[in-house]
Design a protein around this nucleic acid. Structure first.
Length: 484
RNA sequence: GGCGCCGUAGCCAAAUUGGCUAAGGCAACGGAUUGCAAAUCCGUGAUUUGUGGGUUCGAGUCCCACCGGCGCCUCCA
């Protein structure tokens, strides 16, 4: 079985074949940093994090580029609105790049908590102005763009394939009543490559067309080309950016370089709230930070991974609460196996365990190979949970067997899904030994009380520990405890 | 109006490149274990995939119609 991906460009599942194996270039549209990341960002970047993690798991050498948009993203139709960052910065009375830096940092912090691996390169649009000017000049030179009053527009009529990604026809945009030709554009579908700066606009640069700043779409064409080449393997982004953003990227890049742009286009579906799209302009969003005050970020990650990236995810408190329980069961099994591992008798892995491990990994990979079906992969992992708990409680289980199971949790649940951590805070912290001994003493006292049928005392000890968040578990081999 | 998506057990959700007994999670119920609990383990659910037709040896998967919900076509991951 080999990896198959759904390519938005062909609207079909295709075998994944890198242009230049074992190297794989991945470009994903990053955030415009003028506010905190919300659940929609979480789903998107978790989805592409999964893609990158799985490609690496398969042995590919991935270069993952994700831009930070800090200039040029307009509030309105691609040519007439204000720059989002500039507007917000004026409102908060800070320098635009100060605003962008603040939210870029907060974005990375949020993604870190979701265990989203950082991109290999996080280029800023403002750091690539010369490249954007050069690409604009190239498009002017080849007749794909025109300049009017210090503004430069891409001429969509010069690119016959315009609309091939979104399956849209230029004539439709023209005939539609909702889009009217505004400003200096020749055609309604033309879009800005370079904007003339109005007086008072802080972020502006010199260009052959006077002082100004770049359009939004062009940064992705420049930065993907600079770090991944004129043609690269995977371009990812949110479904709502398929048109016009991704369509425009294709037009600019292919018109300028004369080569195909990205080989595979992956689009992640949206987060909804009560069936309605979660969006900044709709005001119905929940920020990651807000959600983190109520749920472990990895619970959110797991709930998102329980669905497929190309399907919408309806965000509700109920689904997070349900996820919380499931997540705790998964992590509980991992911890149980690791605790048991320390005390287990030495020995090779049992044949049954080996078979179980192979079967689990096979099912896991089959699911992931099928267009990154994380829900199916997670199902395989959850099937392992029961056996893992049984094994962890079996005093005869060998260290080899437990290590084999832990290895699966680490590689599949950790490396690929990003849900299982290498170590947990209560595993081996400095004070752990002292706490261990203190609680051990309490457990001795309770065991003695139980032996004497003094259940009032036994329960009192247990209740007091429970109040501290320490849960006791009586088993055949004695009492164990864990932190809630 | 144009393009496109979705409707699977109480809830979330996979399988949609047509084909083994329709994953998994949560909740519920039964059993094991326990002094009682908690945790854990085992087991129980869809003769059936919005509705009605059609194609096929065979359809949740393809086609048609209808009902319901949603996205893009202006900014949004």
């Amino acid at each position: 079985m080999a990896l198959r991906v759904y390519n938005s460009l062909s609207r079909e599942h295709e075998a994944f074949e890198p242009l230049n194996p074992p190297y794989v270039g991945v470009y994903v549209c990053g955030p415009t940093v003028y506010g905190d990341a919300h659940i929609g960002h979480a789903k998107s970047y978790i989805a592409f994090d999964l893609v990158v993690r799985y490609l690496r798991f398969l042995g590919y050498k991935v270069r993952y580029v994700q831009n930070i948009t800090d200039v040029g993203h307009l509030t309105d139709d691609a040519d007439e609105g204000e720059d989002k960052i500039a507007r917000r910065a004026a409102l908060e009375q800070v320098h635009p790049l100060q605003l962008a830096e603040t939210y870029a940092r907060r974005y990375f912090e949020d993604m870190d908590r979701l265990n989203v691996l950082r991109p290999d390169i996080s280029p800023r649009a403002s750091g690539h102005i010369p490249e954007q000017i050069a690409l604009t000049e190239q498009l002017l030179k080849t007749g794909h763009a025109y300049e009017v009053n210090g503004n430069v527009y891409f001429d969509v009529s010069s690119f016959p394939e315009y609309g091939k990604l979104s399956r849209r026809r230029i004539e439709e945009a023209e005939s539609g009543t909702r889009v009217e030709i505004r400003g200096d554009k020749r055609h309604a579908a033309d879009f800005a490559l370079w904007k003339r700066a109005e007086p008072g606009h802080i972020l502006q640069w010199d260009s052959p067309w006077g002082r100004g700043y770049p359009g939004w779409h062009i940064e992705c064409s420049c930065m993907s080309q600079k770090y991944l080449g004129e043609t690269f393997d995977i371009h990812g982004g949110g479904l709502e950016n398929m048109f016009p953003h991704h369509e425009d990227e294709i037009a600019q890049s292919e018109a300028a370089y004369g080569h195909p742009f990205a080989k595979y286009w992956l689009h992640n579906n949206m987060v909804t709230v009560g069936g309605q799209k979660m969006g900044k302009s709709l005001g119905n969003f929940t920020t990651c930070r807000d959600a983190f005050t109520r749920y472990d970020p990895l619970v959110l990650r797991m709930v998102i991974l329980q669905g497929h990236y190309r399907r919408p995810f309806d965000y509700t408190e109920e689904s997070l609460a349900a996820g919380q329980t499931g997540y705790e069961r998964l992590v509980g099994a991992v911890k149980a196996v690791r605790r048991a591992m320390d005390k287990a008798p030495a020995g090779e892995a049992d044949d049954n365990v080996k078979r179980l491990a192979e079967e689990t990994e096979k099912r896991f990979r089959a699911a992931m190979d099928d267009d990154f079906n994380s829900a199916g992969a997670l199902a395989a992992l959850f099937d392992l949970v029961g056996d893992a708990n049984t094994l962890a409680r079996d005093p005869k289980a060998t260290r080899g067997s437990l290590e084999r199971v832990d290895d699966l949790f680490r590689r599949l649940g950790g490396d690929v899904l990003g849900l299982v951590q290498d170590r947990y805070a209560d595993d081996a912290s400095g004070t752990r030994q002292v706490i261990d001994q203190l609680i051990g003493t309490m457990l001795d006292m309770r065991a003695q009380a139980r032996k004497n049928k003094d259940f009032a005392m036994a329960d009192r000890i247990r209740d007091q520990l429970t109040g501290m968040g320490i849960v006791l578990e009586d088993g055949p081999g004695g009492t164990t405890w864990r932190m809630e």
